[in-house]
Amino acid sequence: MDNIIKNFKGFLIDQGFDAVETDYEQRGYHLEVVLTVTQVREFAKKAYELGFYLVFVAGFQVLADPETPSPHSGLAVVYQYARHDRQYRIKACALVPDSLEIPSISDIYQGADWHERETRDFYGIVFSGHHNLKPLLMADMDVDVHPLLKEEAKLKSLDAVSWPSEAPESTE
């Protein structure tokens, strides 16, 4: 089983993913991966091949930072994967570009379907390639209401909500 993890890590390094091992006791997951928009699907495919299951997809919002090399909209998507046969949890995080579009993984993991619809409800992130991006939890009349978006005053920058030092969560 350790082979699988090694295999997976090898893949991550080969493909140039930005992955950091983390302290499970402190954070509750073993590996943190920062994805770019193009890597989202690639990552999901590999994870499915190796028998990971998708725990959840969620969004969160930070202060949009125009200074960074690749400007983002302040929205981010978190994917969590885990395994049935051993204790291994991965958190993958991708910042959503200004177009608010991020590729859907609902054809790789069908379970992502509802999670993505829910994230669209709450944050207005558009998952391109999703077959049925209708409101799920919100009423039909509230298509354009995104309740979990925060007011400007309450937003924090990405650095203010990430672990210090060893988690360089910039968008390179």
């Binding site: 954070r27 509750g28 997951y29 969620a58 949890r89 958190k91 924090k156 203010a160 909500v161 990430s162």
Partner: peptide, 29 residues
């Protein structure tokens, strides 16, 4: 500041709380 996850076995399956803190006592997410 930073995120944290905790999973437990509820009667129906895996229940996972995922929290992002920002240094205050209110969860950021």
């Amino acid at each position: 500041p930073g995120d944290c996850n905790f999973a437990v076995e509820a009667a129906r399956g895996e229940l996972s709380y995922y929290l992002i803190g920002d240094g205050t006592s209110t969860p950021y997410r």
